[in-house]
Each structure stands twice: as C-alpha cells, then as structure tokens.
Design a protein around this nucleic acid. Structure first.
Lengths: 256, 256
DNA sequence: CAAAACTGTGTCCGGCGGACACTGATTATC
DNA sequence: GATAATCAGTGTCCGCCGGACACAGTTTTG
C-alpha cells in the first residue's frame, strides 16, 4: 500500500475516515474492564518513527514495529485498525507542536511570520524525511498538523486577503517547502552533492545537451552557486514578494 | 508505496539507476536471434496506464498488467527489470511531449510562456491523477519529462536570471501545480465539493473552531468563492508577480 | 541439421496487510 | 467470594505482492 497510496483503504472493518479521526482527535482513554493495555498509541507511534527515521517509511511494517516493541504483529491491531492509522499517528507525532508566533503582529509582520514558519516546516522535513512520503495525497490531518496550517493563515490576518486567498497562500508556501525538501533528499542525507542518481541525471543531460540547451546551461552553473539552500530562499522570497505585491496593491489605493 | 517508495529498488540484478536510464534513454531495439518478442515496452506501459487511470497506481501490479495483455506476470520481466522501471515508463508515456512555446520570445513573453506551461502541466495531472503518486521522491527522469523542464527554463532566457535561479523558478512552479493537483484530487474526480474526507475534515474543524479560529473562519468563506481553480490561478499569479518583481528590480536600474 | 540464443511459463520464496479463533488475565456484578 | 463479561495478546491462515530460477518452446545463425 505504500506506493499505491490513494484509494486503497477502507476495505476492512471500520469506516476508514472516521476511525482515523477518532484516533487523531478524540482518544478518550476509557477505563476498561479487562487487563490493562501494555502498549500505548504513543509508544507504537514512536517505534514507527524510529524505524522510519533510520530506514525510511518503506521499512515500517506491522511486524517491524511490533518486533521493535517485543510484541507480535497482531497485538498492534488492538490499538490501530490498520497501517494507515499508524502512519497518521506517526505524522501527527513527528510534526510536533507548531512554534509560537515570533512577534504578535507588527505591520508587515506577516512576512516575518511566514518566513519563520517556512523554515520551521523545512526543519521538520529535514529531521524526518519520510514525512514527505507520509503526507502525500488526500488524508485526514491531525490537530498538530492543522495547528501548523492555522498559524500560517492567522499570520495573514489583517492583510486584506480573503479567507480562500489565505488558504491558497498557505498551500503555495507548503508546496514550495515540500518541493525543496524532496530535492534536498534526492541529493543525499549529508551534503554530498553527488548521489548516484543525480550524477546519472547530470550525465544524461550533458550527453543530450543538444536537446536541452537551456537546461544543460543552467545546470552547469549550479556547481558555482550554493545548492538547495539557495533554492529554498529564492522561491520563498519570490512567493513573499508576490504576496506583498498583491497586499500593497489592494490596500494601497484606498488606505495609506 | 508507494509509500514504500524512496529507497527500495536496486536489490536484485542490475544496477537500478543505469537500468532505468537504459530503458528511458537508449532503447536500441537490437535485432535478436531468438523468437520475436510479442510484447513491447510501449504496449506494456500503455496497459499500466490504462489500469492506473481507472483504479489508481495502487492497482498496478505485474499480474494486473500482464493479465490485461493476456500474458503471465513473468513475461514482463523479459522487458523490464522491475516494477520501478514500469512506473518510470508509464510516467514518460503519460506526460507526453511538451507543447511548443506559444510565441517565440516577445518582451516579457516569459510570463505567458510560464502561464501556458503551468496550465498544460496541470492538465496532465488532471488527466492522469496517478502521476502525482508516480512522481514523488528522487527519481530518474526521462527525455519527455526533461523536455518539460527544458521548456520552462528556456522561457526564462534573457530575463537576467542566473541558471540556478531559473531552475529554482521551475521547481517553484512545478511544486505549485502539484499542490493544487493533489488538492483537486482530494475533492473528488468530478466536481463534487464534498468527498467524505473533506466533509470529515470540515466537520472536525468547525467542532474545534476555538483552537483554529483563523482556519475555521477562512474555510467558512470557501463555499462562497469558487474552488480549486481559483487556488491555482491565485498561486500562479503570486509566483509570476514575485518573479516579475525580481526581474524588473534587476534590469530596471541599469537598462530601460 | 545442429547449436545457440531468446521468449514465455510454472513454481517457489519471503514479506506484506489483515481476518479470525483462541487463551488468559482482569474486573464488575451477584 | 464465585461467576460471568470483557478485553489484551497470540498463532495460524489467506490472498496478494515483487521477484528468483529452472524449464519448455521457437527461431535464427553457423
């Protein structure tokens, strides 16, 4: 199901969406009658994260997670309806609480807020690269994840942007952070500029430079410039510039 | 998976990267000695696309593809080293040849070029939603895919942007198109505004509106506004505005 | 005509997510 | 305190996946 993703779940017992919602949003730890559970959702999620951090999301299977906790695979199904829910919990645990706004809301402070937010999000992706795999496609988000979204939308309060526009801006920013994070991962966990993959791609590009003249020329310059950090900042500044242009264009003629 | 995705291949026989490269870039159809192959890479890829279009990338397995062609699974391995290569071929076949630039390169024609390019890319994602799943993470790109990238980089020739900056702009645009395409897919293949998933998310959001005030307020307005199309255009205009700001800022003081 | 080379097949393996029936511990009720 | 309901953890089974490998059949080369 890993790569398959999209529409696959919901085959088994519960209604997939609401089951996930219950786990992510309303986990009332009812006092039960039988024996006390030896495991907990938190421990399970942390075990999954440990595996994913070390070997990627593909290495996370029920058996692996259970084995790491010295239990059998089926024990986990007493806590989670399926693997999709496990991943959802892992994501929710790994993203962490969003950081507080740096400064209340100075005039044009939104730009600093968004900059800060983007860097924090990028840091989360860097710390847990598998988040890129776990957050693709339509899914149900947890409270932590929504809180991140809330922060960026709230930062745009008072800018004159409509609600949908603020949402669109959030999507725009998040998309950029994702793109760069994926690019950075392709280049290798460390700073090595040449993963076997990038080297192969570069070789092919130079080999067929006649078919891709602009591209070949552009990539030849990359070595001189920095790397992914530059790309991150560049796109970020472009987006913020674009937002600023819209905001001033709207408030300019009427207000100040 | 999907999700497995990332680093999983390369276990078996050939060196994963170069094998894929050979299939995508240099397929010299050598005249062979034995019986003529009854299948072809093209037919196999098209069968895979047919399944993926109908049921998503998760439904694409060797057995399914082989079955659709009335062959057995192992026959396919005579043509492809593994599933990763199959997906790579499917992507390369599905993206299609990039469209020609609309107008040579008028002054500030780059903006129209990029707009056109983005819409064509969005159309590709809409026609084959599984492309979103198939193009995540570090992969080797085929000539068609590189040609798309080439077109956007070429469109920025003569704008004063450096090579890396042009690449960064391409990543920025592509990331935006991806984000919107994923959002659109979540809303449902048709135009239904309420997939079960979005409804659940909206319900949760209103239920906890106190924790996400800005978000709750922003999403309440969504119904009034259009939908994903607006989001696409909005982000696109912001990015282009940001690029234009940089371009004019650079060439302004010196040139015209 | 033989031999080599190649295509397609059947069978097997380990691993995956998950269903289901079961044992055993715990606790609420009488 | 005895009993019955309930729930945690286990073992076994299934179908499906990607892939390895040996084999049969066919066609070209010498």
């Amino acid at each position: 199901m890993s790569s398959g993703s999209s529409r696959a779940s919901g085959s088994g017992s519960g209604s997939g969406a609401s089951a996930t919602a219950q786990l992510l949003w309303g986990p009332p730890p009812k006092p039960a009658r039988g024996p006390k559970p030896a495991l907990s959702l938190d421990r399970i999620a942390r075990a999954g994260i440990e595996i994913a951090d070390a070997e990627g999301l593909g290495a996370v299977s029920m058996q692996r997670v259970a084995g790491l906790l010295d239990y059998t695979k089926m024990s986990l199904y007493r806590y989670l309806p399926g693997k999709a829910e496990l991943v959802a919990l892992m994501v929710e645990a790994a993203v962490g609480e969003p950081t507080e706004p740096v400064a209340p809301t100075e005039p044009s402070g939104w730009r600093g807020q968004l900059l800060d937010w983007s860097h924090h999000l990028a840091a989360a992706f860097a710390a847990h690269p598998w988040l890129l795999d776990a957050t693709v496609g339509p899914r149900l988000m947890g409270p932590r994840e929504l809180a991140w979204l809330e922060r960026v939308v709230a930062a745009l309060d008072g800018t004159g942007l409509t609600g949908p526009e603020r949402m669109d801006a959030a999507v725009l920013l998040a998309g950029h952070v994702r793109s760069i994070a994926e690019q950075a991962r392709a280049a290798g966990p460390g700073g090595e500029p040449e993963s076997e993959l990038l080297a192969a791609l570069g070789g092919l590009l130079q080999e067929h430079a006649d078919r891709f003249p602009a591209l070949a020329a552009a990539t030849r310059e990359v070595a001189v410039d920095g790397g992914q950090d530059e790309a991150f900042g560049f796109g970020l500044e472009r987006i913020l510039d674009g937002l600023e242009a819209l905001i001033t264009r709207r408030s300019g003629p009427a207000g100040s």
